[in-house]
Design a binder for these strands. Structure first.
Length: 595
RNA sequence: GGGCGUGUAGCAUAGUUGGAUAAUGCGUCGGCCUCCUAAGCCGAAGAUCGCGGGUUCAAAUCCUGCUGCGCCCGCCA
């Protein structure tokens, strides 16, 4: 709890000095209390024992007597070798209610830190619809974008479009060479697409891609086809404008379909950058020339070129190829050019990548370093699998995000209709859509990125405690209280702006209220750590805790009772709803008016 | 074979730069709507933190060996 720490450190410093501890290292030992009931901040006194020849317990005891009260510290206690500090609850309430703790805004309207952050995420090849596994990247990336904005950073969210190379080449070839009927014949043993997505190009055009991939394995036809595709790819890699245009026309409708899906999840980008740009503008040519001049550069028999990263300590495969035998560049080479370009436009650079990109990313990072550039921060995530095993479009073991979104909405509709029969169909639909996307995002974001994740329908569609709807529900409760007050002719604006004198409020604050205050007070601490460590799940947990704390407060503190409003409770409820709202927006959860 | 990651109640997970009695949800069992939205709240049972060593006043956390699982080891993207 940062706001308390500022008030504890000076008095604790004095106390430590007077018992003979001058080493400032203790500051890093003062940590949030593990035992929540004992305090907000704790100092373990074990390390001082040897130096002072006293038991940790006695040291904590001595220190507790030396702490001067400065108004912020409500309670100091010494137990089990720990010195615990608890914030004075009315002081804490005052800090919060007077706006000392930043509420923030996840849409970037309140930049606060002067840091320009560029986050590249998703960047999926535009060759087919998102499945739940690939969407983990987008959800993680977008959440990180939002959390950075909530913290006050200026963020650009960027999608790197693979508009050249083999994958798009195959798609373009197929669209040019295969008729509807041929595609259906080739894919006869595969399920046809759901009629629901018959007009969505990511679902329709991927059939051409799949058909072509299947043909490529068929030896009779593959040779000629491989030649034609190779020609296209080669042309694209040398910046042939007509071919690049053909590629663009092939994939753009697919990309549009994919972006429609992401839009439904609340995910948008500030900029799209085409991979081909770095070929056509000459950056790649310049780069390969520079790389060829490096000490650790090497040449293979056929003229292909590589860097020996083993010489810089890379273990395992040490040769990193950046140029093919035919002189063309590779994906990673272009990626390095892209990174150099990105670094010119930001202070911090973050990439979201699947764990399969770890080696590639390491190679890119080491090469950047070799060239005197900074290494980007990378958030790697493990793959989402299904109970039946690895997700694979090819084997039909796959859950499409579009289907999940529909299913979640339908499930939510059912619940709303049951619980709120009086709502109009339009409102039901709005609530269901919001609940569906929020639940999907939260379900993925709450788990640590480096852990494997098994997608289960029953979990994705569980709208109980521990889910986004649980958080959303707490938030609507706060709003419904305010509405109720309004409906009873109370001027809530006036109460909100009233300057309450907490000292004169003759009232013991209930524990659950204090818990809520403490939870709000650490929200930014957790946000900062979550952003710094690139772990959105930490903040997801915080918002979950906040909702739980609010529910406890709601249970114990009646705000509107007998026609009277408890003004302190009201203000705290309003503030909590603010923290809930911005926290939810930071996670991409939609704060509803009612549900 | 080599590299990287991961293993925590029946299940799914949290656990901060090492710190107190390892936290939460689902599931199980038992309570709470005449009371601001019960998508809620309260209570109970349930853990050899994968296994073995080591460092430390203190290890789920750090080091090391073993083991299960995942990913990578293309002049693919």
């Amino acid at each position: 709890m940062k706001i308390l720490r500022e008030h504890v450190e000076p008095v604790l410093s004095n106390a430590l000095e007077s018992i003979g501890i001058n080493n400032p290292n203790w500051k890093s030992m003062l940590t949030p209390s593990r035992e929540h009931s004992q305090g907000d901040l704790s100092l373990p006194c074990f390390p001082f024992a040897k130096q002072l020849g006293k038991s940790p317990n006695d040291i904590a005891e001595d220190l507790s007597k030396l702490i001067e009260n400065n108004g912020a510290i409500g309670q100091v206690n010494a137990t089990g070798g720990y010195l615990n500090f608890k914030a004075e609850s009315k002081w804490l309430a005052k800090q919060l209610l007077s706006g000392k703790v930043r509420v923030g805004d996840a849409y970037g309207k309140k930049p606060d830190t002067d840091r320009q952050v560029l986050i590249e995420h998703t960047s999926a090849n535009p060759n087919g619809p998102f499945h739940v596994g690939r969407a983990r990247n987008a959800i993680l990336g977008d959440t990180l974008v939002r959390l950075h904005r909530l913290l006050g950073n200026e963020v650009r969210a960027e999608y790197y479009v693979d508009d050249m190379g083999k994958q798009v080449g195959v798609l373009a070839w197929a669209l040019d060479n295969l008729s509807d009927q041929e595609v259906e014949n080739i894919l006869e043993d595969k399920d046809s697409i759901s009629t629901k997505w018959a007009n969505k190009a990511d679902h329709t055009r991927v059939r051409w891609y799949q058909a072509a991939q299947k043909l490529r394995k068929d030896e009779d036809k593959s040779e000629k086809m491989e030649q034609e595709i190779g020609k296209l790819v080669h042309a694209s890699e040398h910046g042939d404008e007509a071919v690049l245009q053909q590629f663009h026309d092939s994939f753009q409708p697919v990309l549009d379909g994919m972006l429609e899906t992401l839009g439904r999840l609340g995910i948008e980008f500030d900029q799209f950058t085409n991979e081909s740009m770095f070929v056509t503008n000459g950056d790649v040519a310049k780069l390969t020339q520079t790389l060829s001049g490096l000490d650790i550069h090497g040449v293979a028999d056929n003229g292909a070129e590589f860097l020996d990263l083993g010489a810089r300590g890379l273990k395992g495969k040490t040769e990193f190829f950046f140029k093919r035998g035919d002189g063309s560049s590779l994906y990673a080479t272009r990626d390095i050019a892209y990174h150099i370009w990105k670094w010119k436009q930001c202070d911090d650079l973050i990439n979201i990548l699947g764990e399969d990109h770890k080696l590639q990313s390491k190679q890119v990072g080491m090469t950047l370093q070799e060239l005197g550039h900074k290494v980007p921060e990378v958030l790697f995530y493990s793959f989402i699998k299904l109970p039946e095993g690895k997700m694979s479009t090819r084997r039909g073991n796959v859950v499409f995000m579009d289907d999940l979104l529909e299913e979640a909405k339908e499930h939510a509709s059912k619940i709303v209709r049951e619980l709120r029969p009086e709502y109009l169909e339009q409102e039901v639909s709005h609530i269901a859509e919001s609940v569906g996307r929020s639940a999907i995002r939260f379900n993925i974001i709450k788990v640590s990125p480096d852990k494997g994740f098994t997608f289960r329908w029953e979990e994705a569609l569980a709208f109980e405690a521990g889910s986004a709807p649980f958080i959303m529900y707490s938030h609507t409760r706060a709003l419904s209280i305010a509405n109720k007050c309004s409906d009873n002719g109370i001027d809530i604006e006036e109460i909100s702006n009233k300057n309450l004198d907490l000292e004169t409020i003759n009232l013991e604050l209930p524990d659950s209220l204090i818990d809520l205050l403490r939870c709000m007070a650490i929200q930014n601490d957790v946000l900062e750590r979550s952003v710094k460590q690139c772990r959105p799940n930490l903040f997801a947990n915080q918002v979950l805790n906040l909702a739980t704390s609010f529910n406890g407060f709601y249970r114990d503190c009646k705000i509107f009772d007998d026609g009277e409003v408890n003004e302190l409770y009201f203000q705290i409820s309003q503030l909590a709803s603010q923290f809930l709202k911005t926290g939810m927006e930071g996670l991409g959860i939609i704060p509803l008016e009612r549900m």
